[in-house]
Design a binder for these strands. Structure first.
Lengths: 336, 336
DNA sequence: TTGTAGGCGTTATCAA
DNA sequence: TTGATAACGCCTACAA
């Protein structure tokens, strides 16, 4: 079965291909009865415009790339939902790229992005280097980084939709200072090192302002639940938990919870626990884990919206490509 | 900055564009010194072949579409990893489509898949109808369905990589029959209705063979953890739990666990619990929840591998497009 | 309002 | 071994 092209439709409707093109693209210069004739021909033949040919002709693919690390799938689901929904609304297709240690390096991904001639790119934090952004920039591909704040850069067409983790940590620590508590520890998450850095910076700043120094950054090898639990389980047999423990991901929070309880401490009496990233699993524990309500879906939605604006070169975003999203601390069972 | 084309490279290397095309595509008819000259020109200009133009010329995009429902994203992470890794190995790009109730219906997704001229499609179960597969088939787009077994169909180019949930349930129930236990209930998962159907079919068959009838299919509105827990919490206040409860997803298993314990029952003594889908959260509960070790990554990897074979029309898969994957029951704390 | 023709960047077929 | 040249399917001036 031969693939139907615009020529076939033109012949069927007895018009030129230009006219068919016009009705496809909703040009308003075409007379009503010929439009109908063309529409009928399209129906009859089951014609679908070839997006590839359109892309070539227009030098525009209406496609944007999303690149994220394989390991982060499970955690970025909501953000992705936001990205996808908004992309759909603006009729963009999505090319999806993942990076993983062995099989696909960021460098290859960039290569295929450039070849694909996508109109724009969404990057997740902790997944790329400045160098790679510069390459994309050389090829004039607009991009927006979603997640945390990127460090100052002179690269041109870059947007950033983020949570201010530095401030988040700073404020949280100060709240505990006010209650007279300064025995605080932060559990490292190796999957989100740039976020960790920002959290730590916020804590450091808060401590520094009180003339103190923060030194309970808990770091250990590997980073799944099991290794976290094993490490912490040991740890809390020899060290009593801090008055406040801050973790980034759910599995770490649950590891702290289980390890503490196993070591005979009870939450929140002996130890309060705050997890940065919120998800449903934190409501399945007992007690439920206090966490931040981060607008993940909106992070994605806003990022994609920003990108679409950048793609039409909307002047309204010219100097407004940094968007900080808000969040709310949700007190649950592991804090007083 | 003008985009570099094959012409620019040809001029720079002082050859014709045909020759450039040859070195790009590793044709072995080009003399070594001119190949080097061309390579240098490519380097110097930073030329990257335009995949869109290639797609047009070859009527082949080296791109496959993956379509899954937004809600299932979190659960299909591993499968997606498998899909992405293998796609990467065979140099396929991925177009990613999600379906959701409001914003993007399957019908629109199909439409954009056809327009995109992707070479093949991966479909997840419980996300499409036979009708939509027929449309893809009309446009001669090979597809493979991953997840559970699809019902018999005469549609041509369709592969299927699946878990045999019917058999899984049948075997499990029989195992309990052998222990003299026939008080079994199955908790419905509205997100995976076709899987539920198959599980139920397996249970029904086992019961029928014993001349009994299965009637503890627990169904309730909505399907997040909270609604599950609330429903079950009530339920177990008025009904004692079955000797064996089977759930599909983690959050339902945890809901059963928490609800039972809250109602004063203890697992596995009063009630055994088996969750079909395994994930890390089932090892964070106490006791850990018994579940099946399903080769999710392999499901994805095998599915994508099958699709790539179908795309080159490999005769080796002509009559071998149904692949059943195995699984293992992992006894943990909620079974004896 | 409609049609003609050139261009988008490659690949592939033929000649040379 | 290399170079013209015609597709690939569509869009868009420009002309009619």
């Amino acid at each position: 079965m031969k693939r139907i092209t615009i020529y076939d439709v033109a012949k069927e409707a007895d018009v030129s291909l230009a006219t068919v093109s016009r009705v496809i693209n909703d040009s308003n210069v075409v007379r009503e009865d010929t439009r109908i004739r063309v529409q009928e021909a399209i129906e009859k033949l089951g014609y679908k415009p070839n997006a590839i040919a359109q892309g070539l002709a227009l030098s525009k693919t209406t496609t944007v790339s999303i690149v994220m690390s394989e390991k982060m799938f499970a955690y970025n689901g909501k953000i992705l939902n936001g990205l996808m929904d908004v992309a759909k609304i603006y009729n963009y297709n999505i090319m999806f790229h993942t990076t993983s240690k062995g099989i696909s390096k960021m460098q290859d991904v960039i290569e295929s992005i450039i070849k694909s001639r996508v109109d724009g790119v969404i990057l997740f934090n902790d997944n790329f280097s400045l160098e790679e952004m510069e390459v994309l920039n050389e090829y004039q591909i607009p991009m927006v980084v979603v997640g945390s704040k990127i460090t100052e850069t002179k690269i041109g067409n870059v947007g950033n939709v983020y949570i201010n983790f530095e401030k988040m940590a700073y404020d949280l620590v100060n709240k505990y200072f006010e209650r007279g508590i300064d025995d605080i520890s932060l559990v490292e998450d190796k999957l989100n090192l740039s976020m960790m850095e920002q959290l730590k910076a916020g804590i450091d700043r808060a401590y520094a302002e009180k003339g103190k120094v923060f030194n309970k950054y808990i770091s250990y090898d590997d980073n799944n639940y099991k290794s976290s639990f094993n490490f912490l389980s040991d740890y809390y047999k020899n060290n009593r938990p801090s008055k406040l423990v801050i973790t980034f991901r759910d599995s770490q929070a649950i590891a702290v919870l289980n390890a503490c309880q196993e070591a005979g401490y009870s939450l929140p009496e002996d130890c309060e626990l705050v997890c940065v990233l919120n998800n449903k699993y934190l409501t399945m524990t007992r007690p439920n884990v206090t966490s931040y309500n981060i607008p993940e879906y909106d992070l994605g939605a806003v990022a994609m919206r920003l990108l679409t604006k950048m793609l039409v070169d909307d002047d309204s975003v010219k100097d407004n490509k940094d968007i900080e999203m808000s969040y709310v601390l949700m007190s649950k069972g592991t804090t007083k």
